[in-house]
Design a protein around this nucleic acid. Structure first.
Length: 638
RNA sequence: GCCGAUGUAGCUCAGCUGGUAGAGCAACUGAUUCGUAAUCAGUAGGUCCGCGGUUCGAAUCCGCGCAUCGGCUCCA
């Protein structure tokens, strides 16, 4: 038998007889690695440990704790779950069961519904399968064989999957464990016994192949980890996320309500929530003015014909609200661009005038489907920090670059990191291929120039142009879409926008739509969850609360409060007849940055004793010094 | 919009197979005058999401609707 040369991760090249398994190679290299390996990368391709190597190659073991390894583990758990489900229930058809970011799911077709009780039963059956330590074995069969196998089993979804494979695919791979066979590319962990920690989480509906025209399947979500400890940590994270839920904190901190009597998806801001919003909006206005934007304001309703002209009527009709005024149909704006177009058109523009940047805190209404509404994160009325930039094609790069820097600055100020995605032309869209290509490459070019890492989402653009999306990451690592930059070559054309070039001729400007925070409501929701309601001082709608020790300190407390308020510190007083500890507890639960305690000592020395939200004490200060400190910290966005 | 679950006091929740509603916290009143995360006592508070139906009798069973939650699809 001939020898082959295997390149190992540490740079060593070792000879093995051809036909050796990946497992044997890893074992020979480092026994301890084998225990923690779920699969391996052979020439850059993920394969099982049982994979047979018969020519020169490089092998890298995939650890259970790596991202890929965890994905393979979870995918294998989903197979075990599918087996358990089929063992326990009749007339269940399997479909697909991939690993996802935090776990895995498997979609089933099943007449009845899975209950929480069922999940427990499935879990215990899974534990039996794991205890039996069945090995995952891979086999390769022809398409026809696979089709007839799954037809015999009545697994029509699997048959459909195989039939839809590209024509040149002649063989498919199957994985089986303990008598359960699934169509699967693999790889998988060596055997079910390797599963040490998993949990089924919930049941949800999901369309077959993600298309709402298809059958509704039942999806069971679960998660799995290398150890119980990591699973517990993950469950604790889920608990923490629940505590931070902005809907819950919104109520607890008295920020806003969403009321059935008013209507779903409509947010009613209470004084503290409205104050938080005002702080954000004031910051926005200042920042935009600093960057050469003009603040504009458009009407809430515009005539139907204008929405036809813009293309919204064709593309966005089912998301819009309408109203009748003097026998004319008006559209309630779902976007802010129309007025901005009219502002541009209000006079002749020279190339010397460009770029123009119109900024509007534009309140829009969109008829979102009932099932998608979600607190502040998905509402039917929301306010965008929206801007439209009209410029010459030459200026496009600089403008996009400027926006990227703006977004970066904003994310820093609010304490977020972010990821970038580029979305290309969707199926339902307007405009010529040429324009789309031009716009898409412009976005790509600027991203490259700014050395930004990004992912591409094919077909995920807006109907009028490609876009760059910024997904910000909160304290729990969850991602939220907020900022977006969208190219639009269409609207300038539909509105016949022009500018006079150096040549004295009319030219068409190009347009950028962009938002920085996105929707203020959504951004607030993300902020609330990110900070768990404990906003940094500069954002906190309530910065200080004055607490009196006893009744006799109220007059001085009142004076302190008045002084703070006139010094523009956002303060309230708690002069109730309660013990100090009780008031402090409440201030703490309300996450107020500073508590100012007023007792005999403070009245005597004309100071306030300061308790910080983080429990640390700082020295007593005179009111004016405390106020100066607060204003200083706000200035620095602390 | 689709699948599933849920809807009881301001909030969090209990209420077994149908017999007419309860706790803790909050609120209010009184007492207490207190120094860095909960003082004590008392009082009040409910179209049991809405509308129909079954029943001698419905928070409980059935139907329809509304809303919320978890997802899917869609999206800032």
């Amino acid at each position: 038998m001939s020898d082959i040369k295997v390149q190992l991760p540490d740079g060593m090249a070792v000879h093995f007889p051809a036909g050796v398994t990946v497992r044997d190679v890893i074992a020979a290299w480092d026994k301890s690695k084998l225990k923690s390996s779920v699969a391996a990368q052979v020439d850059g391709r993920l394969v099982d440990l049982s994979y047979i190597v018969d020519s020169d190659t490089s092998i890298m073991p995939i650890s259970l704790r790596s991202k890929e390894g965890l994905g393979i583990l979870r995918h294998s758990i989903s197979h075990v779950m599918a087996q358990a489900v089929q063992d326990l229930f009749d007339n269940v058809k399997v479909t697909i069961g991939p690993s996802i970011e935090d776990g895995f799911y498997y979609d089933f077709e099943y007449q009845n519904t899975f209950t929480p009780d069922d999940l427990e039963k499935i879990e215990s059956r899974m534990r039996e399968i794991i205890a039996a330590d069945h090995s995952f074995s891979r086999s390769s069969v022809s398409r026809e064989e696979a089709v007839s196998l799954f037809e015999k089993k009545g697994e029509s979804y699997k048959v459909e999957l195989i039939r839809d494979l590209p024509e040149d695919v002649e063989e498919v791979t199957l994985y089986s464990q303990g008598g359960f066979v699934d169509l699967c590319r693999g790889p998988h962990i060596p055997s079910t016994g390797m599963i040490k920690a998993f949990k089924l989480l919930n049941v949800a509906g999901a369309y077959w192949r993600g298309d709402e025209k298809n059958a509704m399947l039942q999806r069971i979500y679960g998660t799995g980890f290398a150890s119980e400890k990591e699973l517990k940590e993950h469950m604790a994270l889920i608990e923490e996320a629940k505590k931070r839920d902005h809907r819950r904190l919104g109520k607890e901190l008295d920020l806003f309500q969403i009321n059935d009597e008013a209507g779903p998806g409509l947010i009613i801001f209470h004084p503290r929530g409205a104050l938080l919003r005002t702080i954000i909006e004031d910051w926005e206005k200042k920042e935009h003015l600093k960057r050469g934007y003009g603040i504009v304001m458009g009407p809430q309703i515009l005539k139907g014909d204008l929405w036809k002209k813009s293309g919204h009527f064709d593309q966005y009709r089912e998301n819009m609200y309408y109203t009748e005024v003097d026998d004319q149909t008006y559209g309630i704006k779902p976007m802010n661009c129309l007025s901005h177009m009219l502002i541009y058109k209000s006079r002749i523009r020279s190339y010397r005038d460009l770029p123009v940047r119109y900024f509007e805190l534009g309140t829009v209404h969109r008829h979102e489907k009932t099932g998608v509404l979600h607190g502040l994160l998905r509402a039917r009325q929301f306010t965008q920090d929206d801007a439209h930039i009209l410029c010459t094609p030459d200026q496009l790069n600089d403008e996009i670059s400027g926006i990227i820097h703006f977004i970066n600055d904003a994310m820093n100020v609010f304490g977020f990191t972010y990821e970038v995605e580029l979305s290309t032309r969707p199926a339902k869209s307007i405009g010529s291929d040429e324009d789309w290509n031009l716009a898409t490459s412009a976005l790509q070019k600027v991203l490259a120039e700014n050395q930004m890492q990004y992912e591409v989402n094919e077909g995920d653009g807006a109907f009028y142009g490609p876009k760059i999306d910024f997904k910000l990451k909160d304290a729990l690592g969850r991602k939220w879409q907020c900022a977006t930059i969208q190219c639009d070559f269409t609207l300038p054309e539909r509105f016949d926008l022009s500018y006079i070039g150096p040549d004295g001729e009319k030219h068409r400007p190009v347009m950028l739509h962009r938002v920085i925070l996105g929707a203020i409501e959504r951004f607030m929701g993300v902020l609330i969850e990110h900070y768990a309601g404990a906003f940094p001082l500069w954002l906190s709608p309530l910065q200080a609360v004055v607490l009196t020790v006893t009744e006799k300190h109220i007059p001085y407390g009142q004076k302190v409060l008045n002084d703070l308020i006139s010094a523009e510190v956002r303060a309230e007083g708690d002069f109730r007849n309660e013990k100090l500890g009780y008031k402090i507890r409440e201030g703490q639960l309300q996450k107020v940055p500073f508590m100012l305690i007023i007792g005999d000592r403070e009245v005597e020395s004309e100071t306030v004793s300061i308790r910080q939200r983080n429990g640390k004490k700082i020295d007593s200060l005179q009111v004016k010094d405390f106020a100066a400190l607060v204003l200083q910290m706000c200035e620095r966005h602390e």
